[in-house]
Design a protein around this nucleic acid. Structure first.
Length: 953
RNA sequence: GCGGGUGUGGUGAAAUUGGUAGACACGCUAGACUUAGGAUCUAGUGCUUAAUCGCGUGAAGGUUCGAGUCCUUUCACCCGCACCA
């Protein structure tokens, strides 16, 4: 005897077990079916576990994966873990536990939570970036990067051996590579270099290379950070201060791919905002580089400008404090003052610098350049509004037409020369920043429009041999070394300072055991302390490890053939699955993971591993599910030795209080919109138990006072809390665990409910109000199939017309909505269908089962159960997606809305076979219409057949 | 400052091509059944009104027979970037 009532615990457990035992979601690479690849961003398994926000995207992608399978595709829908990274290591430092151990525990927990939601992941393909079998290939890709250079002429990466061959034949005079400028040498000179010198040269070409640069150093974390790991001068993880520090570092030459990364955006289906963020980050700008001869030196200062048309307005030059000639250009009279300024500017933290954006600072170097066209002397200044890392770290200042230059000129009393015509503004007072107008005071450019002047000035600069048209990118090469333990070891040894790669046979280079995970503080990783690991017959090992994004830049390829020991994946597997058809994930990875993955994909394409250049054909950003942060006000001033908390309605000036986060479980009326949330006596008791340091605190409630834990006042204590929408996080004590929802309502309800919340892309605060509606819907669905005694209801009697209409309207709408990933409206459609079937007392098995199939991607457990009860022996997962048939929706009549002057006044049931004329006549003959017309004749009658009638009076 | 996005009932939202604004839910109100209800069912629910009328998609204009949807101006909020020459 089957269960009579919908018992989600029993059903979900039963089917999850069944699916696992039958390996229902395992997919093969050999299939005659078309391939479809649906990917989720794999999670970092943190100690906090999954909260209800994580599955949002997974549920959406799972629905699409399941539906594609029912539509006849072979669907790859894998999952894995981004398992190297700082949090596990920080935890290891605190507790002494091996990060591998805590990571494993966290993964187990994640897996359990994921399994409970009923995803159709093929777990046989699971990847973990910290597995040796996996990072072997991350190291292998690194080796390829080290062994290749970027040829700007062929516009692709080429093997370094080819470059060496060119050097041996003709030196580097004809080589056009991506990277900084390199002194020219002949073949003869090259052949005479010793090994060390040769490698120093090659480092300028390799796509993975070592360079001494200023890096983002975070003292607290004891490591360098990538640009995108720094937010507002603080580390993204932990929020610790970050300073600039010179250091030798591994870099990847992503800048070689800047233009292709930009162009590729036009070929992929991502949101405009995401593409815009990447365009911004790459930051292409066209302009010119110009050399200004420095007086008394035999060198010229190279600057970059997007406005070479304003060159006649350049009245001074500015170099960044980090500029390599900053010291050299100082004259004796200016040396002390300028050095002091340079030191001050260099030592300021990012954070200080950014908070003082508006202040103008700088110093005169004492040196001058000669203007190439006017021959005038122009002073060279040093100022930190010019950034060392952008362009050439030096600019020509045109104060008349650039507000920053203007502010600087005003402060230091420098000349301002107007070179773009303008009648109204006075450039002595304010700069006139414009890209339209005619040039004046500009010699050979006079009278030209800005656009023409730019091209002409570049032509002349080029002709004079002092510069050329250039394109500049904001994008920087990506720092690739981390002075950390918990990451992929870099497969390099140094012999006499010359880096060389391990052989493929030596991979994976595994992490050794260490006794302490503490950063060494010298800037070296804990690995440096293990002599027996570091010292090898071939030389000293690199002790830096790779950053978190190394493993995640290619993981989507490994899923295609996760066990392969010969390659990252077989050629056949890569060819069969191809690009990721749909990638679901958060937009916070816009300038990190998503850019690096595109970079590695293009590189792997260049070296003939991949037949495609873009990894993710279509990308959808699921919105963040936020939590509500509850906190209470603590007076900054204590009352004697007692802490004083004050109810939010009695707080006048927030500055007098500290806000203490409160566990949301203690709060009453949590998340109600119509009433403020508060702590009652019980909630306050829970709070004190939780934070015993406030055992003796006083609570000033809105209706009385609690002292020494005794409430004096009217009725029940009411202590109002402050509620804000914010991140769902462990530190805010507001995490909602999906397990709890699965336990109470079931995974199918959770899945439907998360989709029902609203459009997938929108951010929304989590709230369970409304979940009952979804739960009721599933119970109603159940009742269509099973009566109170557990009998199976559907029969093979002929379906009635109304039910067929409901069914096909549902098939049509859901099929269309899944295609445009509008999953919230699908849930509404299901509800409407079930309401109608219930109303119709529909018992037709064929109709109801087709409905089940359409519902099954959203609610796989209940539909599988009801499918089985209908006598099926194979899973609903392999049922065919039903075909929509228009004929069931054809209507004979239409209930026309009749509007008068655009306002709907009444409805009329009319045959759809009537033509415009006939409809008009019928409408005008109607008594109610005549009453509305009040004897007047309509000026115009608009009839839109099948839609509407509008009478204009 | 630049770029992207969003504004619709008490709440989450729908309206895909300009064609009955508020589907579907939550909540609320009333009723039925019940020892009970945080179960189930029935009816109602944009505002206003006794009911009609009237008014309603952030605001103001415009195009149109007809505008949440198109155009112009404007306001608010969110996200990203930010001394990028």
């Amino acid at each position: 005897m089957s269960e009579a009532h919908y018992n989600h615990r029993f059903i979900e457990h039963k089917w999850q077990q069944n699916w696992r035992e039958n390996q229902l979601y395992k997919v093969e690479n050999n299939s005659s079916k078309p391939a479809y690849y649906v990917l989720d961003m794999f999670p970092y398994p943190s100690g906090a576990g999954l909260h209800v926000g994580h599955p949002l995207g997974y549920i959406a992608s799972d629905i699409i994966a399941r539906q594609r399978r029912q539509r006849g595709f072979n669907v790859l829908h894998p999952m894995g873990y981004d398992a190297f990274g700082l949090p596990a290591e920080q935890y290891a430092i605190q507790t002494g536990q091996h990060p591998a151990k805590t990571t494993e525990e966290n993964i187990q927990r994640y897996r359990k939570q994921l399994d409970r939601i009923g995803f159709s992941f093929d777990w046989s393909r699971e990847v973990r970036t910290c597995d040796e079998d996996y990072y072997k290939w991350t190291q292998w890709i690194f080796k390829q990067l080290f062994s290749h250079w970027y040829n700007n002429t062929s516009n692709r990466a080429e093997h370094i051996d080819n470059l060496v061959a060119i050097f041996e034949n003709e030196g580097n005079v004809n080589v056009n590579h991506a990277g900084g400028e390199i002194e020219k040498f002949t073949a003869e000179k090259w052949l005479n270099y010793n090994a060390n010198e040769k490698e120093d040269v090659l480092q300028n070409y390799r796509l993975a290379f070592i360079q001494e640069t200023t890096v983002n150093w975070c003292e607290e974390l004891g490591t360098v950070l990538a640009n995108e790991e720094v937010k507002d001068g603080l580390s993204e993880r932990g929020g610790y201060p970050v300073i600039k520090k010179p250091m030798k570092q591994w870099f990847l030459r992503i800048t070689a791919y800047a233009q292709r990364l930009l162009d590729g955006l036009d070929t992929i289906d991502w949101t405009d905002s995401l593409k815009e963020i990447q365009r911004n980050w790459i930051g292409r700008s066209e302009g010119a580089s110009v050399h200004f001869q420095i007086d008394g030196h035999d060198k010229a200062l190279e600057i970059f400008t997007t406005r070479p048309d304003t060159i006649f307005g350049a009245t001074f030059m500015v170099i960044a404090p980090e500029h390599e000639w900053a010291d050299e250009l100082l004259t004796d009279s200016q040396r002390d003052e300028a050095t002091e300024y340079i030191n001050w500017a260099k030592n300021r933290s990012e954070r200080e610098r950014m908070s003082e954006v508006k202040s103008v600072t700088g110093a005169f170097t004492g040196s001058y350049c000669t203007h190439p066209f006017t021959g005038k002397q122009i002073p060279i200044w040093v100022a930190d509004y010019v950034l060392g890392g952008y362009g050439t770290g030096a600019i020509m200042a045109v104060p008349a037409h650039d507000s920053r230059d203007h502010a600087f000129a005003k402060k230091f009393g420098l000349d301002i020369i107007q070179v773009i015509e303008n009648d109204e503004a006075n450039v002595q007072e304010a700069s006139f920043d414009t890209k339209v107008g005619k040039c004046i005071n500009s010699g050979f450019l006079d009278g030209l429009d800005v656009v023409d002047a730019i091209s002409k000035s570049i032509a002349i600069i080029d002709q004079k041999g002092i510069g050329k048209g250039t394109i500049n990118y904001k994008l920087r090469d990506a720092g690739f070394g981390r002075q950390r333990y918990w990451g992929e070891p870099i497969p390099v040894v140094f012999n006499e300072g010359i880096p060389s790669l391990l052989s493929d046979a030596e991979l994976p280079l595994t992490l050794p055991e260490v006794t302490s995970y503490e950063p060494s503080g010298t800037g070296e990783s804990p690995l440096a302390a293990i002599d027996e690991w570091v010292d090898t017959p071939q030389g000293r090992r690199e002790t830096d490890t790779m950053p978190g994004w190394a493993g995640s830049s290619w993981y989507f390829l490994r899923y295609m053939d996760s066990e392969n020991e010969q390659a990252i994946a077989s050629r056949d597997a890569i060819k069969y699955w191809g690009q990721v058809d749909l990638y679901m994930g958060g937009s916070e990875h816009a300038t990190g993971h998503l850019l690096y993955s595109r970079f590695w994909t293009k590189f792997l394409h260049d070296i003939n591993i991949l037949p495609f250049e873009e990894p993710f054909k279509k990308l959808v950003n699921q919105g963040m599910i936020q939590g509500i942060v509850e906190s209470i006000y603590l007076k900054k001033e204590k009352d004697g030795d007692k802490a004083v908390f004050v109810s939010a309605d009695k707080v006048e000036n927030e500055d007098d209080y500290t806000q203490i986060p409160v566990h949301v479980d203690f709060v009453s009326d949590y998340k109600k919109t119509d009433a403020p949330s508060y702590l009652n006596s019980d909630g306050i008791k829970q709070f004190i138990d939780w934070r015993p340091e406030y055992f003796k605190a006083t609570f000033i409630c809105s209706n009385g006072t609690i002292e020494d834990r005794i409430f004096e006042g009217e009725g029940e204590a009411r202590f109002i809390t402050k509620s804000e929408i914010g991140k769902m996080s462990k530190s805010k004590f507001n995490v909602v665990n999906p397990d709890d929802i699965c336990e109470e309502y079931g995974a199918d309800t959770l899945r439907l409910y998360e989709m029902f919340l609203g459009p997938l892309e929108d951010a929304k605060p989590w709230s369970t109000s409304g979940i009952d509606g979804v739960s009721r819907f599933l119970k109603k669905t159940w009742k269509l199939f099973v009566d109170q005694d557990g009998n199976y209801l559907p029969t093979d009697d002929e379906a009635d017309k109304k039910s067929l209409k409901t069914l096909h309207a549902t098939i049509k709408k859901v099929t269309e909505d899944i295609n445009r990933i509008s999953l919230n409206t699908c849930v509404s459609t299901f509800m409407i269908a079930v309401n109608e079937f219930t109303e119709q007392k529909c018992r037709n098995k064929s109709v109801l089962e087709q409905f089940l199939i359409v519902l099954s991607p959203f609610a796989p457990h209940i539909t599988e159960e009801l499918w089985e009860r209908g006598g099926h022996t194979t899973s609903i997962v392999d049922a065919n997606w039903p075909k929509f048939d228009e004929k069931h929706l054809v209507e004979d009549t239409k209930n026309y809305p009749i509007s008068i002057n655009g306002k709907t006044r009444l409805n009329m049931e009319l045959s759809l076979s009537l033509d415009k004329q006939a409809v008009e006549e019928a409408v005008l003959a109607n008594a109610d219409v005549q009453q509305w017309l009040d004897g007047k004749t309509p000026k115009k009658v608009i009839v839109v057949p099948g839609r509407i009638v509008n009478l204009v009076v």
